[in-house]
Amino acid sequence: MEPLYTGSYHVAKDDYTSAGHASADIKRQLKQIGVSGDVLRRVAVASYEVELNLVIHSLGGDLTLNVYPGLVELISSDIGPGIPDLKMAMKEGYSTASEMARSLGFGAGMGLPNMKRNADDFDIKSTVGVGTTITMGFHLA
């Protein structure tokens, strides 16, 4: 099915200055479409976490927003390095973040669990040396 709205953002590795801009724009677009309240906040939180992960952990990637009737979909897709142990990565508190990321208030190891908690559907696929794709769905009431 064709989405009603779609937007795509490139997120560069280590670009701490712009980190968060894609999510701020996603939030703005959704608000304009009429998404509000609890769902909007859940999308915003998950989007911010996944965007920060692209900056902190990936070699670069894309964040895509698709809006369908009754559904908001967020897809993060990067070009590596991939996650060797997904079960470990999903644990609260597990983090391999750099000092730089930590000094900015990230690297608490809460990002992936936060995404899972906030999204209605959460799927993560990762291959070392290839990349990580995270797909999240949020149901509109």
């Binding site: 968060g20 939180v45 911010y48 900015l104 208030g105 990230f106 809460m110 936060n114």
Partner: peptide, 26 residues
């Protein structure tokens, strides 16, 4: 820890922090 804040806080909450980088505002 911004991730902790993102996990637990809602809009009726005041955030007290010692961090003054742009991510606190974002």
């Amino acid at each position: 820890l911004m991730s902790d804040v993102l996990a637990f806080v809602d809009e009726k909450t005041v955030l007290i922090t010692g961090l003054t980088n742009p991510h606190v505002v974002r």
